[in-house]
Simulated assay, not measured.
Amino acid sequence: MYSHPHSHTGARIKRLRLERHLTQRALADLSGVPYSTLTKTEQGVIAASPHVIACVARALRVEVGTVTGQPYVDELRADELDVLILPIREALDVYDLGPDPEITPRPWPLLRADAYKLLLGVRAGEVKQAASQVAGLIQEVTTAAHLTGSTDGWQTLASTYRTAYDVAAKLGYGDLAAIALSRMDWAAVNASDALIGGMYRYMRALTYLRSGQYRTGDRLIARGLSVLEQADAGREREAVTGQLHLGAAVLAGRAKDAARAEGHLAEAERIAGRTGEAVDVHRLSFGPTNVAVHRVSVLAELDEYDRAARTGRAVTLPQDWPASRKSHHYTDLARAQMWTGDLDASFQNLLRARKAAPQQAKYHPTVRETYAGLESAKRRLPDTFLSYGNWLGF
């Protein structure tokens, strides 16, 4: 391997294990990860799956980011992204102070347009641009919302908090993402908006998915479905409901509960049959395509990599589908193909993930783990492979 010998996730797991004075056998028993899987992961022979990472993190009582190495500070600094985090943190912290006397907010149509533009930017994979603008917009909209107290104002503020969550989550700042979510919920309550309340619980459930707390994630999904019953019936409510079922399916897949995962996928598919492609409904990208790509994700979480790869190859992404979602699908497909030994196809999908949304792909832990898995295979790979690793910071 030509990457730094102590930079891969397996090496971090070993270091953390030794700090806890645990043998490999003891950690395997504590985490529920098979002994052979743990030893090969520590050695860098196989990539660390999200399930293994979450199980090990919980057993060692550390954050998932501590195991994955997030946030990737050196790369963030090189890309001048690290300096954008503190302003977002400060903007999220003044939510309850009322209007700022030094801010004169612009008219609501302009604020709404900017909030929508930032959401679209994140969907297009323009993470840096959104990160550079969201803090100032949060402060301006916070003042405007407090001054008017209107439902529309609180909804717009919730939108800016959602963008802050997306930026923080994509750059690996889990604590900041959690704060942004709590602010989103606060704004949703002020707006009395059940749809935003349902989306908040969906997004919060994903944070528990990453940390391996599947039961808590399931409880949040159930609560979200209950909150959505308070919203007006219609396509919007159905799309958000369907997205909650997709989140529940991935949770069940990572928990290795195939039957429950299939049940949620089937329900989401039924709903998508009624809504059609509802890509613009609250920017959730819900619809038949999203159900199809989530099926690939679920199969990969169930370690059914052959089926995931076959299913993924059959998925046709619409030309106008959001770049961030395209990149995520290519990442999932690359992971499945890496585990099946289809190394060339896997790397091609890593390239597609990068092309679709480069800033997102660069900081996605699954991209890095898949690249490490391809590297450890020690087979002949294209000349572009080394440059890809350099781009990632390996």
Rank of each mutant, 00 (worst) to 15 (best):
A361H: 15
L30Y: 01
H51C: 04
G242T: 04
L244F: 03
T66H: 04
R12M: 10
A222S: 09
E267F: 03
A11M: 12
R25H: 06
V367K: 02
T311Q: 13
V83S: 12
V315F: 05
A169R: 10
L147F: 04
L386C: 07
G10H: 11
R20N: 03
N190T: 08
E42D: 14
D344E: 07
A336K: 02
K117P: 00
R61W: 08
R313I: 14
Y165C: 02
T9E: 07
V291C: 01
F347H: 13
L317F: 08
S387V: 09
A48G: 13
A356T: 07
E140W: 08
L110K: 15
A144P: 01
L137V: 03
L22V: 00
T9Y: 01
V279A: 00
D152K: 00
A177Y: 04
I221H: 06
G247Y: 11
L111P: 04
S132C: 05
D29I: 00
L16S: 11
D218G: 10
V298P: 01
T366S: 05
A272H: 04
L251C: 12
V94N: 10
S150A: 02
C55V: 05
G263H: 06
R106A: 07
L118A: 06
Y305N: 12
T163N: 00
A361K: 12
A292Y: 00
D344W: 13
I46R: 13
K128W: 12
H328T: 12
R15V: 02
R20V: 00
W108E: 11
R25D: 03
D342M: 12
T370R: 00
W391N: 01
G121R: 05
T163M: 05
E63G: 14
K326V: 01
G263S: 05
K355Q: 11
E269K: 14
Y363C: 08
